[in-house]
Design a protein around this nucleic acid. Structure first.
Lengths: 335, 335
DNA sequence: TTGAAAGCGTTACCAT
DNA sequence: ATGGTAACGCTTTCAA
């Protein structure tokens, strides 16, 4: 169907091997022959078959990036970083989206395994991703974890400093005079959610504030859940005066829920969150956040991965931690 | 290196062909043999090699989606639709991002061609994408255009109704009493930008309003450009009282620029735009927009593509047009 | 119900 | 400097 090196060889009056050598710039070839082959390749619109090549070379020069939410700006920035880094290193990037669903994640593992990609940059849905990662490990496919770690698996990873960020956001609220601070946390099955909660608790303790069970909510991203949590919190006898949302998605839901209840931010409730919000917030840079260097997550993740694939990595697993930057804005009364 | 059907065959005491038949559920095989093979496959952690299979079957069951901006919510929604539709139809989706750059687009063409994907869902950077599309056509690789059309190429496509949306937004501004309406348009090298400008002009004309050259700006997405355009517009002897931005990105830039000049929206200038803004705007559903059904763009695009690949499509090229929905909100004084 | 051989398009290896 | 042959892992075709 498509033009092959044999077709080229026939036209050029040489062997397929010679054509292959021209394509790969390998071995010695007379300038005359090279030019003739090149001309004919162009003329016949030759396109190399990457699958055939990968089959014999036992490498695809393709990396794969799995993210959990393609609509989250944190992950799209990360994807851009990964893309740029992969390109620079001579790899293609296959992008996929698990939607935080374990089933899709598993399906994806099958895909990359049978596609014989050279490595995977992996943002796990949560601790429950362990079997999926073990599958990669068993098949000897190099991978790097990004954003979240998974207990039970040792590997290279690029993480944010969730605990530190949470501490700083919580401290900030305390400095603003808040003593009743609620946590709208993510699932405890996700490492970042746990770390953010830990930072919150520790800061309360260090400041001599009580830890109140009823001020802590755990969200599993189900419909209407955030609104229910917020409603419960604000209906407490002593409702919180400030809210720490563990990520941008939760913050959005929380603010919407507060608004629906006629509460103003920050006048009635101060709100801070982890992760930057969408670019559109330039219209109204409103939220106090702990922003993470998402693009760099992608770049460094790919670099670790490629080092590992090419055997340039140290034997020990590497753990890169990128600190967040806190931006004080109106939502916390910070500006 | 990895387990092959020959390894399985040896263990199972049968031929590779038998293993192949078990994997593909093809031909007749005794239940006993089948079970034995299945057991051994599991035991040995067999993973089929998709490249080897594609090489002989001459199809990859992979489709490719090219978008021009992975950070734009229009395209990420579209990508989700495409992903879901592809999955449903038994295809994998390879996602790529051209960043509106022709060079990346060209590079991408090479990739999909040599990867031997079965088809491409293509959001072109603009009219200048023509040679890239011709390349696909020459290689007989099925493709479907989404969002933008490209003069000079006939193919299946899924488009929005840019002209109609522009008319309705412009009419709305006129109904609000505006007579001096500026257009912040996209590049004239992009079909949607032209159609939106046409809708704008036509509506002015039908309403008996003059078309003023100085009220029209064309943006090529260069740094600082939007701010300069807005500054020029607002410095005119008779500055516009309303602004129609041809897409969400331009609208964001425009509003920021207006704010920097101390102008309020909508009190000093009304603003409307094409495309919905980020989800984060739930915090402040502020902008009057012509929203497009982005997810459906993806779904329908993939369906057209697969029909074409599988030979189920009519001979004639199909052109699906999805109408926008106008949401009246505060930015235009609409609510 | 099962198997042997050929071939998909390429590169590695050994010749010449 | 160039070519022949085998191999990558699989499916198709034909035969038993």
């Amino acid at each position: 169907m498509m033009v092959t090196i044999y077709d080229i060889a026939k036209q050029a009056g040489c062997s397929a091997m010679t054509v292959s050598r021209v394509i790969n710039n390998t071995g010695r070839i007379s300038d005359e022959t090279r030019q003739r082959v090149l001309d004919i390749m162009k003329e016949m619109n030759y396109v190399p078959n990457a699958m055939a090549r990968s089959l014999v070379k036992q490498e695809s020069r393709i990396l794969s990036l799995l993210i959990t939410d393609i609509t989250n700006p944190f992950y799209t920035s990360l994807a851009r970083g990964a893309e740029d880094a992969a390109r620079e290193l001579g790899y293609r990037l296959l992008l996929a989206n698990s939607d935080e669903e374990l089933a899709k994640e598993k399906e994806y593992i099958d895909t990359v395994l049978s596609a014989r990609v050279d490595g995977v940059l992996f943002a796990p849905a949560g601790d429950a991703s362990l079997p999926n990662l073990k599958r990669l490990r068993k098949q000897n496919l190099p991978f790097v974890l990004i954003d979240r770690e998974v207990p039970g698996i040792e590997c290279d990873m690029v993480l944010g400093d969730s605990k530190e960020g949470a501490k700083r956001l919580t401290s900030h609220l305390i400095e603003q005079g808040h003593a009743r601070i609620a946590l709208l946390g993510g699932s405890r099955g996700v490492s970042t959610a746990r770390a953010r909660q830990a930072g919150y608790e520790e800061t309360l303790q260090l400041s001599g504030l009580p830890y109140r069970e009823e001020y802590v909510a755990e969200s599993h991203y189900r419909a209407g859940e955030i609104a229910r949590h917020v409603k419960r919190l604000m209906a407490l006898p002593e409702p919180p005066t400030a809210l720490f949302a563990a990520n941008n998605f939760l913050a959005l839901g929380a603010i919407r829920a507060l608004r629906d209840q006629g509460l103003r931010v920050p006048e009635d409730v101060a709100v801070v969150c982890f992760d930057e919000l969408e670019a559109g917030f330039v219209l109204d840079p409103f939220m106090t956040v702990a922003a993470q260097p998402a693009y760099d997550f992608g770049v460094l993740g790919i670099r670790l991965l490629v080092d590992r694939i090419q055997g340039k990595a140290a034997e020990d697993w590497r753990r890169v931690v990128l600190p967040p930057t806190v931006h004080l804005r109106r939502s916390s009364g910070g500006t």
